[in-house]
Every structure is written in C-alpha cells, then in structure tokens.
C-alpha cells in the first residue's frame, strides 16, 4: 500500500515536469527573439530531464518491465495527475511567463523541503532540481517585472495573464491522502507550510512589476485526481502519437 502511495506521489512530480516541459517545447522557434528561444528550450530540457528522473523512479516502484517511456507515452488523460496549471496552453508570452512564474516560485520552495526527504532518491532529485529552479525563477520573475513595468500594452497583457491563471494556483497547496501519508512518513512535503512564503514571493514580484494580486477568484482543482481541463487530451494525443500508432516499435 505504502509503495503504491509513493508511486502516486512520484508520478505527480514526474507528470508536472513532463506536461510543463511539453508545453514549453511548443515554443521552439516562436519566441520573441533568438536568445529567448534558447532560454525556453533550456527550461523545457530541464523539465524533461526532471520528468525522466521521476518517471524512471516511478517505473522502478511499479516493478515488472514498466519504463519511464511507458508512463509518459502510454497512459490516458485520467491517469495523469499533474497540476492543472502545468497543462494550460502557452497563450502569448505573458501567459507562458505567468504560468512559469507561479510554478517556479512553488517548486523553488517545494524542492528545498523535498531535499530533506527521508527517501534518498527523492532527496537527490530535489537537490539537483533546486539549482535549475533557481535559474528558472530568476528568468520568469524578471520577465513578469519587465512586462508588468514595461509598456502600457505589456502591462495589460501581463496583468491579464496573472488574472487568468490565478484560479489554478490554489491546487498547488492542496494536500490529499497521498500527500498526507507521505508527510507522515517524512518522505513528502507539507505544502500548506510553504503557502505563506509563496504568497510573499508572489506579492513582492507583483509589486515590483506594478501588477495587482487578483482577489476573489474562484479556485479550480482536480488534476491530482485525474480531472483535467480539456487541453490535456490534445497535448497527449500529440505527444503520444507515435507510441500509440506503432505500439510494437522501439525508438
């Protein structure tokens, strides 16, 4: 039972990185300038690297012959447990930066705690991820500030991105049965305790960016239980196409 819960816990971490990496990889050559194409590819690569580590670990917990690729390419929408925020479409550059900023601030705090996990594998992956996340956070928060405090047009776009994605941020801090069990075993992170710090970071950056923190927004969640926005299915049908069309092939 405990192994099954650990599997679910690790799977969520892998799914978050995988789905966010896939979204970022859709930018490829579409960034506002070449240097930014490179930066977005870098972050996307870090996400896939992280997804690979978590999913390999999850596959090993699952046993038999399951591989990280099986978990990435052969599960259906309802079996993905990523946070809904990760699957949100790229939209314009401000939307992508808002999504990234919320998640980077969260994961920066999350991995600092996960590094203390009694599960050695999780602790090791968390330690590796802290460095990357620090860089990602610097990149996304600086863009939020630049766009918020740039031109009237960029300010409006950045504010609207923050407002539109805010509804998905509460889900990051929800604790379900799996999380509580992992916390009791000193394997997982208490997300409730990092919420205050996250709020503080967000407020500081939004204030420097001359942006308003959204208020009275109805919050949505469900990703951890496999209830997603409709966007995820399309993302998966694209990502999983070859593996599904040629199930006997090896790539």
């Amino acid at each position: 039972m405990s192994k099954e819960l650990l599997f679910k816990y690790v799977l969520t971490l892998g799914d978050d990185a995988l789905i966010l990496g896939q979204r970022l990889s859709q930018w490829v050559y579409k960034g506002p300038f070449l240097e930014e194409d490179i930066a977005l590819s870098n972050i996307s690569l870090d996400m896939f690297g992280r997804a690979n580590l978590f999913l390999e670990y999850a596959a090993s917990l699952k046993g038999s012959t399951t591989t990280a690729d099986d978990l990435a390419f052969k599960r259906n929408e309802r079996e993905f447990s990523n946070h809904i925020l990760c699957e949100q479409p790229n939209g314009n550059f401000a939307n992508t930066m808002a999504r990234q900023f919320f998640l980077d601030a969260f994961y920066k705090l999350f991995f600092e705690k996960l590094a203390e996990s009694e599960d050695e594998q999780l602790s090791a992956i968390a330690q590796k991820s802290i460095k990357e996340t620090t860089y990602h956070f610097r990149h996304s928060s600086k863009w939020v500030i630049r766009l918020g405090d740039g031109t009237a047009e960029s300010h409006e776009k950045m504010q609207s991105a923050i407002d539109n994605l805010w509804m998905f941020t509460d889900e990051l801090f929800e604790m379900n049965e799996v999380d509580n069990n992992m916390l009791t075993q000193k394997i997982g992170v208490d997300c409730l305790t990092i919420k205050a710090k996250w709020d503080q970071i967000i407020d500081e950056v939004l204030s420097e960016a001359t942006l308003k923190r959204p208020e009275n927004i109805h919050m949505t969640s469900g990703g951890r239980e496999g209830i997603h926005t409709e966007h995820l299915g399309h993302l998966l049908s694209d990502m999983q196409y070859l593996q599904r069309a040629y199930p006997d092939a090896e790539w």
């Binding site: 990889s25 070449l34 870098n42 896939f48 196409y241």
Partner: peptide, 21 residues
C-alpha cells in the same frame, strides 16, 4: 519535437534545435 517518441529522443532533438538557435 512535440511528437518525438521517447523522452530521450525528445531531449536530444530539443538540444539540437537549441544548438541551431
């Protein structure tokens, strides 16, 4: 890139396109 059939091939392809940039 979005349809690369394995995590490894996806990472290698992204890295390659990034090199081109």
């Amino acid at each position: 890139i979005t349809r690369a059939p394995s995590l490894r091939s996806k990472m290698v392809l992204i890295a390659k396109v990034q090199d081109e940039a």
